[in-house]
Design a binder for these strands. Structure first.
Lengths: 133, 133
DNA sequence: CTGATAATGATACTACGTTATCTGTTGGCG
DNA sequence: CGCCAACAGATAACGTAGTATCATTATCAG
C-alpha cells in the first residue's frame, strides 16, 4: 500500500511548480527548502515511484544529468537561459517546425521525431540587459 | 614533442571517415579492427590531444555518452537512424531553421543558439522497408 | 644506428550519480 | 488509540566513464 507522506507531497509539488525540467540536485535543493533534512535517497526513491506511476517523465539534455517534468504535457520543446541557467518549457504552440515529423528530407531521410533545444535569454534575464522601451 | 604513431593515425582516420559523430566505444571498436590490441586508454588520450589541437569537436546527445566529429564543419545538425542506430551529419544546407538564431520568440525569449536532433530512417534503412519505384 | 623520451597497453584508481542497507519513524486501517 | 508495514534519513556500496600509473615499446633527431 502506497502512503502519502510529506516528502512525497513536497517533491511532486516541486516538479509541478517548476518552470521546466529540473535535475535531481535541484529538486532536492528546492524541496529541502520546504522540508529541511530531506534526504537525497528519498528524492531518488520518489522519482522512481512517480515515473512508475507515469506522473512524471524524464528529459535528457546533452551533457547534463537527467531532468524531470510532469507527464502528459504533449509535444513541446525546451529553452535554456544562458543567464539564469534554467531549462524552461516552451508550450505546444512554441514548436518551431510542426510540419517536420513525417517529411522526407533531401537525400531521403525520413523524419519520425525531433528534439529541439533553444539557448538564449529568457524574458526576465533579457530585460536586465536591455530593458523594454 | 608530439610524435606521429600508428594508433593516432588510425584513430583520427576513424573519426574522419565516420558517417557522423561517434562515441568512444565505437571509435575504439572500429579502430581496433585495423589495429588489434589497441587500448581504450589510448583512445581517450588521443581524443584529448585532438581536442586540444582543435582537430575534432565534442557533440553531446541526450542520454548518450559524448560523441566526436571532425572540427570545422560549420553549422549543421544530426540525424539518428532508428534502424541502424547511427548518428549522421546533415550538411549546412540541411538546417531546418536558418532564421532561428537572433529571433525573439513570443513571450520574449531571445534565441542565441539551437540544437536540433532528428530521429527517423536513413536512406539505406528506409529503402529496406519501402523500396523506391 | 642509437639513445632519449614520448607513447602505448594493462590495469588500478578516482569521481560521481545512483542504489542498497540499516535503523528508527510514521501513516492509516482496525 | 495501537499496531505494523511502508517510509524516512544516513551512509555504505555499487557501476561506470574517465584518469593516473607504470613497465615496455616505438618514434625520430642526431
Amino acid at each position: 500500500m502506497i502512503r502519502q507522506t510529506k516528502p512525497r507531497e513536497i517533491i511532486i509539488k516541486t516538479i509541478e511548480r517548476a518552470e521546466g525540467p529540473v535535475a535531481v540536485e535541484e529538486i532536492h535543493a528546492r524541496a529541502a527548502g520546504e522540508l529541511p533534512g530531506l534526504g537525497i535517497a528519498t528524492v531518488y526513491r520518489t522519482l522512481k515511484l512517480l515515473l512508475a506511476q507515469e506522473r512524471i517523465a524524464v528529459v535528457e539534455f546533452p551533457g547534463e544529468p537527467p531532468h524531470y517534468e510532469p507527464a502528459g504535457r504533449g509535444h513541446h520543446h525546451h529553452f535554456r537561459c544562458l543567464s539564469c541557467n534554467r531549462w524552461m518549457e516552451m508550450g505546444e504552440r512554441g514548436c518551431i517546425v510542426p510540419w517536420l515529423d513525417g517529411s522526407i528530407l533531401p537525400g531521403g531521410y525520413l523524419v519520425e521525431g525531433h528534439r529541439i533545444s533553444l539557448y538564449g535569454r529568457c524574458p526576465n534575464c533579457a530585460d536586465e540587459v536591455a530593458p523594454p522601451g
